[in-house]
Amino acid sequence: MAAQPSTIIEAKDVDFYYPGGEDADSPALSGINLTVNQGEYVALVGPNGSGKTTFLKLLNALLIPTHGQVLVKGISTAVESTLPEVRRVCGMIFQNPDNQLVATTVEEDIAFGLENLALPPEEIRNRVFKTAALLGLEKLLSQPPHLLSGGEKQRVAIAGVLVMEPECILMDEPTAMLDPAGRRDVLNTVRELNRNRNIAVIHVTHFPEEAAGTDRVVILNEGKLAADGASAEVMTDLQFLHGLGLQGTTAVELAALLRQDSFPLPPQILYNRELVDSLCSLGQNS
């Protein structure tokens, strides 16, 4: 089956075994089939050790499937000669911003990937400035990255990916090390890029609140695809989430407890505001 025009990522019957591991017969991932289209915002959720990071690494060819294949805009990640294109299309943001900033100023850091493409200096400067402006980093361009806040560092890392004009951003727990303000900052930035520039996002997270804020949630469990559906549906199926050792948002969890106490709350409550509104309207009726 040929890739659809709007398909960015296609994983077909992917198995992955870490080579040389003691557990050579137990795959880190098995039988994964997944398609991600242009502009989709997908949360990738699952317990520790379920294969989330492994899967993300397969999507920009840091790892190659043992069986099956990963196609990025129709190009197999297993073909060496097209790796630069695969990695341009799918840029990666890691958990710890300190591990991915390489240069002595923000400007050089954002330019790093472009320099490797051997573009003319003028072109590089233009693209760096444009990207920095888009992410509100103009004033920080001459700063050393290590003096920035955690949220700013992650935005610099995002800028370094964005400047390559990706069509998909892969993020591995990008907010795990950040404070609440930094977290909001990064999430808003990514959401805007997704909405305004139609960039697909695959976002690995342990935070139910973050998963609930995406369009689609994919759950991995023990290396297998356990769920794939609209966020509003997957993240409100508490019985299923609990079965995998996962949690719903605080609103979903509290609503479930209150339903046990026979509060007639609607099933689709996902966010705090929905729970608050529902509870208050109950008050008015009684």
């Binding site: 303000a181 705090n272 729970l275 608050v276 208050c280």
Partner: peptide
Amino acid sequence: LGLALPPVTEIMHGLAEKGM
């Protein structure tokens, strides 16, 4: 300070603000 309250506490504040 850019900090947050515990998530459950946020919900209780939401309810209190609506008069509960």
